[in-house]
Design a protein around this nucleic acid. Structure first.
Length: 305
DNA sequence: AATGGTCAAGTCAGC
DNA sequence: GCTGACTTGACCATT
C-alpha cells in the first residue's frame, strides 16, 4: 500500500497547477506556465519522498490548453528533458502516479464531437505519463459519463467507444464509480465487457450503491486489476460534517481511517486521499498506516541508505 | 493594492 | 429554459 493525495501540495510554497485565460493565450505564456508547473511538480514530489508519500495524482492543468486547438506547441518535445528528469525521480523512488481528467471528458457522450474532444484530452493525459516514462501502472481514471436518459444504452456506448481507442490509451484507462450516475456495479459490468480495472471510491459508494458492504465492494473492484496494472487504486474520503452530500472532509479523521484500514485488511491497494487539507492528511495517514503490514516505505525513510 | 466577476470543455437536478 | 454544483482557486479587468 502506498498513500497519496491529489494534484496540489499546500505547504511547499509553489503552485503547480497555474493556468491562464484562453483570451490571453500565447506560446510564451504557455511555456513559462508549463515551466513553472513542472518545476513545482518536482518540488511536490521531493516533499512526498521526504514524507514517505509514494502515490500522487498529477494535475490535469500541468499543460494548460494542451488538448485545445489554440495549443500548437509540441510541449513534449519542448520539455523533454524536464519530463525525463522528473520521471527518473519517480521511478527511482518507486512512486505511483495517476491522473484524473475532469467532467468534460466523456467517452460515452451522444455527441461525437464531445467524444472526439475527450479522446484528445485523454491523449494529452497519456502523453504526460508517457513523457515521464512511466509503466502501465500509471493510470488515468475517469467516470463512465452521462446517463442521457438511457442507462443501458449509455453503458453500451461507453464499451463500444472504448474499443475504438488506441492501445496507448486503453492500457492506461481505469473507471471509477461516481456519486450521482454510475455505481460500482455499473463499473464492474463495464469491466467485464472491456477488461478495464475499476477504481473504488469509498465516498461515492457511500452515497450511491447497490447495497454492497465496503469490504465486498473493494474485493470486487480489486479483482479487476491485472498484474501489469499494479495494485488496485482506492479513492478515500469521508463526508464533510454538515456539508452537502458528496463534499469532501476538511481533514483526516484518525478513528475512521483506522477503522477503514482494519475493515479492508486482507486486501492490498494504493490509497488516494481526497481530503481538503491534502498533504497534511497524507502525512497523518502515513503515520497511522505505518504499523499496517501492507504499508510500503522507502528504504531511506527510516534512516537507512 | 484590493476586489469580485469570470473562467475551454458537460451533465443533470432543481427551480 | 435557465442556473448552479461538481472541483476551486486563480486570473485579470476594474477600481
Amino acid at each position: 500500500m502506498k498513500i497519496g493525495y491529489p494534484c496540489k501540495n499546500l505547504s511547499v510554497g509553489c503552485i503547480g497547477d497555474k493556468t491562464f485565460r484562453l483570451k490571453s493565450y500565447s506560446e510564451e505564456r504557455l511555456v513559462s506556465t508549463v515551466q513553472n508547473n513542472l518545476q513545482c511538480l518536482l518540488e511536490m514530489l521531493l516533499f512526498n519522498a521526504a514524507h514517505n508519500i509514494l502515490f500522487f495524482r498529477v494535475t490535469s492543468d500541468l499543460v494548460p490548453f494542451a488538448s485545445h486547438p489554440a495549443c500548437r506547441l509540441n510541449w513534449r518535445g519542448a520539455f523533454k528533458e524536464t519530463f525525463s528528469k522528473i520521471g527518473t525521480f519517480i521511478r527511482l523512488h518507486d512512486m505511483r502516479i495517476s491522473m484524473h481528467p475532469d467532467q468534460f471528458t466523456l467517452i460515452n457522450s451522444q455527441d461525437t464531437a464531445i467524444f472526439k474532444r475527450s479522446v484528445s484530452e485523454l491523449s494529452y493525459h497519456a502523453g504526460v505519463l508517457d513523457a515521464l516514462g512511466l509503466d502501465d501502472t500509471a493510470k488515468i481514471q475517469i467516470h463512465l459519463g452521462g446517463v442521457y436518459g438511457d442507462r443501458k444504452a449509455s453503458i453500451d456506448r461507453f464499451a463500444e467507444r472504448f474499443e475504438t481507442l488506441d492501445e496507448a490509451l486503453k492500457k492506461r484507462l481505469v473507471v471509477e464509480n461516481d456519486d450521482t450516475r454510475f455505481t460500482l456495479a455499473d463499473c464492474l459490468e463495464v469491466s467485464r465487457r472491456t477488461g478495464l480495472p475499476v477504481v473504488f471510491d469509498v465516498l461515492h459508494h457511500a452515497i450511491l450503491n447497490s447495497g454492497e458492504t465496503v469490504p465486498d465492494a473493494l474485493q470486487c473492484a480489486a479483482q479487476t486489476w491485472g498484474a501489469a496494472d499494479g495494485l488496485p487504486i482506492v479513492d478515500y474520503s469521508l463526508q464533510k460534517l454538515e456539508g452537502r452530500k458528496g463534499k469532501h472532509a476538511e481533514f483526516l479523521e484518525a478513528n475512521a481511517f483506522e477503522a477503514f484500514l482494519e475493515q479492508t485488511r486482507p486486501i492490498d491497494f494504493d490509497l488516494m486521499l481526497e481530503i481538503k487539507d491534502k498533504e497534511q492528511s497524507a502525512v497523518r495517514a502515513v503515520s497511522i498506516a505505518a504499523t499496517d503490514p501492507r504499508f510500503v516505505t522507502l528504504p531511506s525513510f527510516h534512516g537507512g541508505a
